[in-house]
């Protein structure tokens, strides 16, 4: 029994057990349990302020929870943090773009160093950004900036994508581009954990409503 169940237990890209978090002596959420498998998209839903972004930050190891365990393939993410971090990409509400630089320069310093400039051009073309690649970012609209930040998904090798409301401020064509990216990533056995309020036109989605854990 043991070996079989152990491998089954350890094959999850991400497993969260009994997680609790409090801020300023107020419990934001507690008893959080879920997992993300390979090739699967988990959509976290819930009302505003129920701690979706905080939960994502905990999963990136930026915040330490007061209670509970976050593990990847059966191993605590803090055990080999370097290995875990090289396997994830997180894109939140703050886009980490320098407004004085062009999209190209921004992507150049955040994308991993092995990438060629040509590769970044191709990725930006896929995101519909080829016409603005040389403009400084302060000339770009909110939606275009979001697209620039999301271009990192194409340039990254990470298996697990942690996306905090990736569709906010995107137009319809932007949404469908991201949906395509996610679909391709899932087909390559990657995993996505995202928050959002929209319904997606994708298969292999599991939805979790965070309200059950909120206080």
């Amino acid at each position: 029994m043991s070996i079989l169940s152990l491998t089954k237990f350890n094959d999850k890209v991400l497993r969260v057990e009994n997680l609790a978090f409090e801020r300023n002596e107020r419990t934001i959420f507690s008893g959080v349990n879920f997992f993300v498998s390979e090739g699967e998209l988990l959509l976290l839903q819930g009302r505003n302020g129920c701690g979706k972004s905080t939960l994502l930050r905990i999963l990136t190891s930026l915040i330490k929870p007061q209670q509970g365990l976050v593990s990847t393939y059966g191993e605590n993410i803090y055990a080999d943090r370097h290995k875990y971090l090289s396997n994830i990409i997180f894109i939140g509400h703050q886009l980490a773009l320098k407004l004085a630089l062009s999209p190209l320069d921004n992507l150049y310093w955040t994308a991993s160093s092995t990438r060629e400039r040509q590769h970044i051009f191709e990725a930006m073309d896929e995101m519909g950004l080829s016409s603005v690649s040389g403009l400084p970012c302060y000339r770009l609209s909110a939606g275009q900036l979001k697209r620039v930040a999301l271009t990192r998904l194409i340039l990254s090798d990470a298996k697990l994508w942690l996306l905090d409301e990736p569709f906010s401020s995107l137009d319809l064509s932007g949404v469908s581009i991201i949906e395509k990216l996610i679909e391709r990533h899932l087909k390559q056995n990657g995993s996505v954990l995202m928050t959002g309020h929209q319904d997606l036109r994708l298969s292999n989605i599991r939805k979790i409503d965070m309200t059950i854990w909120c206080h």
Binding site: L62, L85, F90, Q94, L95, A96, K98, L99
Partner: peptide, 9 residues
């Protein structure tokens, strides 16, 4: 702007 966050992860 979130760059520090990205640097830390």
């Amino acid at each position: 702007d979130g760059s520090l966050e990205q640097l830390l992860i």
